[in-house]
Design a protein around this nucleic acid. Sequence first.
DNA 1: GAACCTTACGCAAACGTTTGCGTGTGGAAA
DNA 2: TTTCCACACGCAAACGTTTGCGTAAGGTTC
Lengths: 343, 343
Amino acid sequence: MKQKVTLKQIAKELDVSISTVSKALKDSVEISLDTRQKVKAFAKLYNYKPNNIALSLKNRKTKTIGVIIPEIVHHFFTTVIGGVEKVANEKGYNVIICSSNNSFDKEVINMEMLASGSADGFILSVAKETQLKKDYHHIEETMSQGMPVVLFDRIIDEIVCDKVIIDDAKGAQTATNHLLSIGCKKIAILTTVDYISVGKLRTNGYLRALRAYDIPEKEEYILKIEDIDNCESEIKEFLKDKDIDAIFAVNELFAVTAAKVLDEHGKKVPDDVAIIGFTDGILSKHFIPSLTTISQHGEDMGIRAAKLLIDKLEGDEAVTEEYRTVIIDTNLIHRQSTKKNKE
Amino acid sequence: MKQKVTLKQIAKELDVSISTVSKALKDSVEISLDTRQKVKAFAKLYNYKPNNIALSLKNRKTKTIGVIIPEIVHHFFTTVIGGVEKVANEKGYNVIICSSNNSFDKEVINMEMLASGSADGFILSVAKETQLKKDYHHIEETMSQGMPVVLFDRIIDEIVCDKVIIDDAKGAQTATNHLLSIGCKKIAILTTVDYISVGKLRTNGYLRALRAYDIPEKEEYILKIEDIDNCESEIKEFLKDKDIDAIFAVNELFAVTAAKVLDEHGKKVPDDVAIIGFTDGILSKHFIPSLTTISQHGEDMGIRAAKLLIDKLEGDEAVTEEYRTVIIDTNLIHRQSTKKNKE
DNA sequence: GAACCTTACGCAAACGTTTGCGTGTGGAAA
DNA sequence: TTTCCACACGCAAACGTTTGCGTAAGGTTC
């Protein structure tokens, strides 16, 4: 089994020095044309590829971006990654993806691992547990070692760095407004517990929209779901005999689960109850009825995040000291789940 | 801005040699207890972490697994990655994920990039284009340089290496049998073009099942979809006025799209037409009606693939020379889309 | 033939580690 | 006082690169 060929081996075979080989491959004028050609031919023959590790060590940078997300099996996050990869590949960067699995410890471990030489900077959406614990030492430590961090989606206000977010409250308000505009009056919200930043913001947007329409908020219309994986039972309980004409769900899963429960109760979507979701994933698109939703433009978020990071990585000191927060526009995607006949 | 602290800096501060620091941190008996404690205290204070890059260079291994998949925004592939990560983390490996986007060129580029120092071995599902082109030089080259490769799902028969697959034909046969067993006689299949290995295998399984039941295969019941992203129009055209009582779809998207088209035609699933899919993703689970399907156990595939790879990486020569093909069991998940009333 | 200039290459340091071996210091034994 | 032995530490090489600088060989100029 062949081993990877190095400069040293080529040098030995051709009876020249390592530096000659290195320079020849780079077409340095220091080396005679003859030698250059010989070396290059030999290198091609043996399929020489410079060793990235050695280059990283020498250059003190890895040309690699570390991405840490709470879940890997998650449509929104993968679209973001898609965007990151796009930009990264264009600019000659590699992407390492790690999932924290919503665990604080795993987030810390992954971050430390990547920070100790494997990546030049981070794109990060923090784990649920991290938001709960409010322990951000690993992020601060990483930044204090000179590695830029870009936070996206689930961000942390207390940390000063580049951020890419959507205006969750505004998106939620738009969603709720849409329900109001088609004549719904009794609008329930299925949301997460408050320590999830985006959940709280979306709840706020919902409340804001109601207030703007002078509709009193009702405790009984708000369900804050704790255990996302078992949301069905909570939603079932919540929806039982509830007199509502619309539901705003802060994510796809809540939306389709609600649809399912309504279906079981013999209620029709959208005629009896309209539904609007958040995040334009495959579920919303392919569900029957297809779900009206707020698109988060995950790929754009990834693109912007990657650009911010690479700017920091390649920028001079001036750029480095200035932090930006990019807000990605959301927009309402009209589908069947909010098409009232009375409209 | 602090920079990352190195052994050299600690050594200078403490006025000892680099090797003393290194040994002290490793609790070498060569170093006096006093010095050891001093060094360790200092290292902790400055949050010293050994530089992975330097270690990789020295050890000639990176403790990193490269995973290349055709698509990142894809439920099945992400579940596989989840499995890989699980095992990798347990064994102290890092995981780098790259997507080829189903492009041959990107697959080659990613592979070469990772092969030149960033990863010790690969877990790979080949791009559609690669299957079409039948050009596998990059994989062969990587293997000939001593880096183990594990192929999964979309594998290549011609390449001799470890593989993790499901028995696609058998799974398809099981699916078709199920349809037959509930009384369906006119079973259509929505499949991919033949150069996609898994698609072809599933088509074969379908045909095998029909033959076993002595049902003649009909050309008009078979749709080979070329452009997956625009499958809806093809399916619509195909299903128009077709007299069938069941559909076997080789993936989720085809299954739900068929359901949607049927819905538009006023046909009921499962009463008029039963549907069975392949791959147990979120769509199948949450669709109304929920879809009966063949589970591929993506996470298990990832786990097995990672284990095979790590065995190769850490094994001695004996293990290295022997290649295994692991076949993961599929199983039928009964849901509503095949619950005939007549049953 | 001396002085000088090109040309074409090699040396060595550096990136941050690890580790086998060499060595200076001190104390104990003879 | 000499010899010897632990003990505690430093040296240097190695992993694979890149690159500034030094230098030998050969040619040109006067």
